[in-house]
Structure formats: C-alpha cells, structure tokens
C-alpha cells in the first residue's frame, strides 16, 4: 500500500524584494515589490508503506517545503498529495493521529518542566489508553536510553538528550509515517549513531514509513536504501542509493601505481589529477573515456598496478548538497 503519493506538487512563495541600503529600506516601506519563487516544482513521488527514504538536496532545494506540504502545514500552489489516504492540508485529526513531524531545530517539548509532562500531554492529545501509553513509553525509553532524562526540566538536557526526548514525544502514538527533518543536526558522533540505530529499529519494528532529510552523509548511507534528490525544487533522482552513483557521477576514478616516479604534469592530459605521490596517482576521468585513457596510461607510463573505481557514494551525495 502507498503511504505517500504526490502528483506534480508545486509550491510558489512570494518574497519581498528590497534595494540595498537604507534608502532601499525606506522605499520598500512604501512600495514593496514581490517576487515569485518556485520552491517546489512539479514533484511526483510514490512511497510504499514501510520504506525508509532519504530526501536529499542542497539548502533551499525545497526539502523542508515538501515535508511541510506532506504534513499539512503548507497548502501547495498546485498539484496533489495523498498521505496515509488523506489530503494532508485538510488537517483531519484522523490523519494527524497517524503521523509525526520532527524538525531537528524545533522542539515541541515544554521547556521549563520535565519531558515526561509533554509525553503525558501527547498521551491525551493522541487519545492513548494508559496501557498503550505505558507500553509505548517503556519501549521508547529503553530504545532511546532516556531513563535519566525523564524527570529533568527540558532546558537542562543536553542537545543529544533533548533530541532523543523529542523523538520519544513524536513517536508515543506509534505513527505509521514519520517525517524527519535533520534528525542528527548538531549531535556528536556517538549520539548520531544512537539516533540512527533507533530510526532503523523503529522502522523495522513498526513497519513505519520514514522520510528523512539530512545533511549528514552517514545518515543517508546507513539508513536509506532509497533516495530522492531534489534540486531547485525539481525532482532530480528517485531510486536506489547504489544506482545514484552511476546516474549522477559523470566520471570514474583511475588509480595507478608506477615503478618509477611520474610527474603530475605528465598525466594532466589523461584526466584531472586528484592525488599524486610520485609512485602513485589518482585520476578523475570522464565516464565515456575510461578505457581509452586507461590504455594510454598503460602504454605510456611504467604502470605496475591499475584499478578503475566508481566515485565513492559519499562524494556524490556531498556534491548534491553543495550544488556542484
């Protein structure tokens, strides 16, 4: 069954434009000009129940805007979406009971009092019986190692503890769909690892659909068999993470070992030299010309060993993030 389906989902924003300087500010006070920006442009995706999908793109690519439309916070300019059988922006409570949106930088926890109180509030908001509440909470506290954080005011928690408490608050009602915006932002490596392990486990245990955005390479590589890439609001790639490389990388990597020193300058005509150590070199070569260049390398240089590799996946994802 489909968890999420969108057809040509599009969102325009109007943003005010201002000339530089003080005079520009004064002018814009009386005569504000607006410019239309297309944040999401005709995005069509289908996500099956139980999938764990990474949603990638550089800053401003339209990821958060898409998540907001899927959670019903934003109404699209045009296009359709059906999430868990509902049109999200109608904000029906039958829909809201079945999903959760977690934004890394925002908290739903009450700041001055212990997280347990927010959990209790969510229990009644989502209409959980006491038995279900206890069971779910027990599970989450175990998985997220929250035992020591429950009775401390939220403002006294570390960022990692807070993020885990945040996840617990969002998952108490066992949502069938979880939208995660940057779940590991600002966490240290150990904590990132814990949060990732938890997300994986939650997905497996509950057959929950999870769509997550992240700028953290490891999140994507470790968690998401499938990725969706958007750039400037447009869908760029949707498929297995493994195939992202062949689709996205326009070059391969040739590594060569020589038995005599070779100067980098002499190799320049074969490709971009990314590393050279006299007896070793690493070259970036356009995909279509790999065999021809490798042959030239073998003929013209004292090669003892040569391998041809795909570009590492994290390189690709990193390039997607940085827009190159």
């Amino acid at each position: 069954m489909l968890s999420i389906e969108t057809r040509a989902l599009t969102k325009n924003f109007s943003v005010p434009e201002k000339d530089p300087g003080l005079w520009g500010s004064v002018k814009s006070l009386f005569n504000r000009r607006w410019r239309q920006v297309r944040a999401v442009d005709s995005v069509s995706i289908k996500i099956e129940e139980g999938e764990l999908v990474g949603f990638l793109g550089a800053n401003g690519a339209g990821k958060t805007t898409t998540l907001k439309m899927l959670s019903g916070l934003l109404t699209p300019t045009s296009g359709e979406a059906v999430v868990l059988g509902h049109v999200p922006w109608k904000r029906k409570s039958a829909f809201q009971r079945r999903f959760s949106l977690v934004m890394g930088q925002r908290t739903q926890l009450w700041w001055e009092i212990p997280a347990l109180e927010t959990f209790r509030l969510n229990q009644v908001i989502y209409g959980l019986s006491d038995a279900d509440y206890k069971k779910n909470l027990g599970e989450l506290v175990d998985l997220l190692e929250l035992q020591d954080c429950l009775s401390v005011p939220v403002k006294k928690l570390s960022l990692g503890q807070r993020m885990r408490a945040e996840l617990a608050a969002a998952l108490l009602h066992k949502p069938a769909l979880l939208l995660l915006d940057e779940p590991t932002l600002g966490l240290d490596v150990v904590m990132q690892q814990k949060v990732r392990a938890f997300i994986k486990e939650y997905n497996k245990r509950n057959k929950a659909t999870i769509l997550l955005t992240s700028h953290n390479m490891d999140d994507v590589v470790e968690l998401c068999p499938r990725v969706i890439v958007i750039e400037l609001g447009r869908l760029l790639y949707d498929g297995p993470l493994a195939q992202l490389v062949s689709r996205y990388a326009d070059h391969k990597i040739i590594r060569a070992v020589f038995d005599r020193e070779v100067k980098a300058a002499d190799l320049a005509h074969l490709g971009t030299v990314v590393e050279d150590g006299g007896l070793k070199a690493v070259l970036q070569v356009p995909r279509g010309q790999v065999s021809a260049r490798a042959a030239k390398l073998l003929q013209g240089f004292p090669v003892v060993d040569l391998t041809i590799d795909e570009v590492p996946i994290d390189d690709i994802v990193r390039r997607i993030f940085t827009h190159k």
């Binding site: 904000r91 809201q96 999903f99 969510n122």
Partner: peptide, 12 residues
C-alpha cells in the same frame, strides 16, 4: 518563530 507548527500537526 514557527513553533506553532508543532501544534498544527497535532490533533488538538
């Protein structure tokens, strides 16, 4: 601050 979003997605 946009914090209101966290209420708007909950059934309350």
């Amino acid at each position: 601050s946009g914090r209101i979003s966290s209420y708007l997605v909950r059934p309350i």
